[in-house]
Every structure is written in C-alpha cells, then in structure tokens.
Nucleic acid binder design. Structure first.
Length: 420
RNA sequence: GGAGAGGUGCUAGAGCGGUUGAAUAGGCCGGUCUCGAAAACCGGUGUGGGCUUUAUGUCUACCGAGAGUUCGAAUCUCUCCCUCUCCGCCA
C-alpha cells in the first residue's frame, strides 16, 4: 500500500508507475474520495466537539441538581447528525481502502521499463557451463535411474507436483537446507523457524491477499493458509511494532517448505523439478532504515549469489523490468542458474525491495532519534529455492555413466561425495 | 473439547457511567546537586487522523477487535479474538 498523502501530492508519479507495471488506474478516484473523506471529517469533528462540550455541561448540571433539558434536546439533533456523517464517512473510507489496496508499488527509476521477460536486463554472469564430451541428461532422467526422486509415487500419495525425495536425494535436500541456513547465519541473519500456516491478516500484510488467493492452499475449517513462502510468516513477525532505530537492520533467515497451487502451469515449465506444488526454500528477510534500502538490496543479492558461487554453478543476474515485477515490489533481481541438461536458465532466487509498501500494510515502524515513528523498508530474497538448484547440481555435476559428483562444499553435510 | 478468570500506556497495576488520554509505582529522557557517579528532588515521556496563522497550536479518535445502550462508555450489553488456571485428549 502506498501513502495516501503521497498519492494526493504526487498523483502523476503514481499513475506513471501503474502505466509501467500495467493494471487498473484508480488514482483520480482515490484523490476524489480522499477529498470527500477530509471534508466529511471536518464537518463531523465539529459536531463531535460540540457533543463533548454539551455532554460535560450536562454532567455538571446534573451534579449541581440543575435542569439540563434544553441541552438534552440539542444533543438529540447533534447525535443524529453525527450518525449520518459517520455512516457516510464509513462508506467513503471503505471504498477508498478497497482502491488503495489495488494501487501497485511505484517502480524505482533504475528499473527498465518493459512488459515481457525479454525486457529484463541481464546484469552479470558468473561461472561457466561445464565442458563435457557427452550429451548431458536432464535431471528427470538422472533421478529416475539413481532412484533419488520419485515423481510417480508422489502422484499416488498426493498428486502431481509433490515429489518424494529418497535416499541420497533426501540427504542432498537436507544438506542444501543446512548449508543455506549456515551461510545465512554466518552472514548475520538470525535463524527463524516460523509457523507453516498463516492467517489472512498476515497474507494481506505481505501482499498475497486480497488478489492472489489462488496461489495458496486454503484450510477452510480454520481460516488459515499453507505458507507459499517463508516471507509471509517471517515478515509478519514484526507486524504492528515500533522498532528501535539502533536495532536496524534486522535480518532473518528461515527454512520452510513452500506450498503453491500454481494453477494454470503446464508443459516443459513443470517437467521434473522445474515447478512443483511443494518445495523447500530458505528465505532471507530484512527490515532496514529507508535511507539505505537500496544498498541493502545489493548486499542481499550478494548474499544469495555467494551460495551459487560456493556450489560452483553457472548463473546470471537479471534486473526485472517494470512489467515483470510483482505488485508489491519497487525493484527486483532474479538469479537464474544454468541447466545444462535442459539447455535453459532456471530461476532460483528472487530478490526484492518493497520499500515501505509492505511495512505500511503491516504497520512496521521504527523511531528515529527524537522523532515520530517512520515505516521501515522491507526486503527479501530466496537464499535459495531448492528444487531447481538440485536440478542444476544434478545436471551440472553428472558423469557420462549417469552418476553425480556432489559439490565439495556439501560434503560435510551429505557425508558422501558421489551419487550413484 | 469442557469449566472458570482475565485482556488498560514501555512495564507492573488502579479505575467499573460524567474535567480519565487515563491514578500510583517502575523504566526511559532532561534538569538540580556532585570532581564524577549513586541517592534524593524537580520536570518530561503514546499513536493515528483532520485543520490552520506549522505551533511549547487546535480539534478528533484510540483502554484486545467489532457492534449496541446512553446526552455522555475504559467503565453497561452482545459477538468475535487472545491469554491464564483446572479437567479431558495428546507428539
């Protein structure tokens, strides 16, 4: 959510942002409703002031045993007027609120303007695709032969998109989770184990609700949702709090499974581990001083990149264009790892600055020295999402015989150096 | 799941229809005292919204959330949420 005052004072900037990102433009309507709201507020507050004064006069009269009937008559009118104005005000505010939730975050000036993935700009590449003298297999062929990930039986147990990790596959998964968490902690993030179910208020805070309900699994009996990402529970930890300025930045890292319905996906995008309904992810979340949030975005990117570098995987960094950015983001990088078996890039991390957009929804503030509370800026990034990293490792480190060499950094976590 | 108690400011804790935005204590900030500190004493210490001559300004709202009764609600009523105690169930 944006600041109403900001929209009032800079409607053109907000419209410009909407134009770049795409979506409905309700700015004029908001400005109009805001005007109505303030006019009504002025009227009703004068009446409320009158009510308070007369009420206390009645109190005094009664105490002294005097007659207060004329005051009581006046109050009858005032009371009804207040009721009328309050009703109208409530309607205007409800409508205003509804529209406010439909205004996307304003993209940062450094974000390229565009509408399709082709408009994203590649910032850098790291590493190289391995040089091999055989035809690399895609991971789904490798895992079937090695019997470390079982897609078919996952279908039996739950449905498509719920893979079963077995033996060294399961151990590799656990090794990566531990590796990612340890690296996060070493870089100053506090490890968090959040709830895996979230309520509607939390989902609204980070922006999954009201518009993206379709991406989450719902628990109707208890009015809860399965976490689509650790971002939701972890960011909401500090909801409705005023933080000490000296405690910023606050950095959390958390491993959770993530549950996504991914309705409407199909084809090669969902083959194997490319897109599944349940997957593991370590998420990095920061609450920072607004003045430094873009520096913090860069360091968050560095934190995530370090993981891929230590795994020795070839990857590239994309700066996402306005149209390819989410509703809540001001600026976003994606990390894409090279899949040699599929000959394509796979997204393994999404690193975003939300500025005050989420903080305003969640009411997360800090107290500047001697001043009024201000909203923090929130950021998050995957560090990292497991399935495609696993896919890339299996494909990148495969041998001609269909075995897989485990990256050295993981040896102490896996306890083995080769799969097969 | 059953029975009971309760949710008040940074914290503890009064208030249970009328100068209560809220006693009192602690904390925190500032001051006096001191070579310095402690103690003692004095003063200050919430958030959102509106208005304007943007100010040691003013109005309004906020005592778990929402609705209601009343001229007037932290105080009474209803619904919901949460916490605690006991019982039941249980990794």
């Amino acid at each position: 959510m944006l600041d109403l005052k900001f929209i009032r004072e800079h409607p053109d900037l907000v419209k410009e942002g909407i134009r770049k990102k795409g979506g409905a433009d309700h700015v004029d309507e908001i400005v109009k409703l805001d005007g109505q709201r303030r006019a009504l507020l002025q009227e009703v507050e004068v009446l409320k002031n009158r009510r308070n004064i007369v009420s206390s006069e009645i109190g005094h009269s009664k105490k002294e045993g005097k007659d207060a009937s004329s005051a009581l008559t006046e109050m009858e009118t005032v009371k009804n007027q207040i009721r009328t104005y309050d009703d109208e005000l409530r309607q205007v505010e409800e409508q205003l609120n509804l529209l406010m939730f439909q205004i996307p975050n304003v993209p940062h000036p450094s974000v390229p303007v565009g509408t399709t993935p082709a408009d994203n700009s590649e910032i850098s590449r790291w590493g190289e695709s391995p040089v091999i003298d055989f035809i690399p297999k895609p991971h789904w062929d490798l895992v079937a032969k090695l019997d470390i990930i079982d897609f078919e039986r996952g279908v039996k147990v739950t449905g498509a998109g719920f893979p079963i990790f077995k033996g060294k596959g399961a151990k590799l998964e656990r090794a990566l989770i531990n590796f990612f968490l340890d690296e996060g902690v070493a870089r100053g993030y506090k490890e968090i184990q959040p709830p895996l179910l979230i309520n509607a208020v939390s989902a609204k805070g980070t922006g999954q609700l009201p518009d993206k309900e379709d991406l989450m699994y719902v628990i109707p009996n208890d009015d809860l949702y399965l976490v689509p990402t650790a971002e939701v529970p972890v960011t909401n930890i500090l909801r409705d709090e005023i933080l000490n300025e000296k405690d910023l930045p606050i950095k959390y890292c958390a491993y959770t499974p993530c549950f996504r319905r991914e309705a409407g996906s199909y084809g090669k995008d969902v083959r194997g581990l490319n897109r599944v309904h349940q997957f593991d992810k370590v998420e990095l979340v920061k609450f920072v001083h607004p003045g430094v949030s873009y520096n913090e975005l860069e360091s968050l990117r560095v934190d995530a990149e370090a993981l891929l570098q230590k795994l020795g995987l070839h990857y590239r960094v994309l700066l996402m264009c306005t149209g390819d950015m989410g509703f809540t983001q001001s600026k976003k990088y994606d990390l894409e790892v090279w899949s040699i078996g599929q000959q394509r890039w796979l997204e393994v991390s999404s690193i975003s600055n939300f500025e005050a957009f989420q903080a305003r929804r969640m009411n997360i503030r800090f107290r500047p020295a001697g001043g009024k509370p201000e909203f923090v800026h929130t950021l998050n990034g995957s560090g990292l999402a497991l399935p495609r990293v696993v896919a890339a490792i299996l494909e990148h480190y495969q041998t001609p015989e269909g075995k897989v060499i485990v990256p050295k950094i993981l040896h102490k976590y896996t306890g083995f150096e080769i799969i097969g």
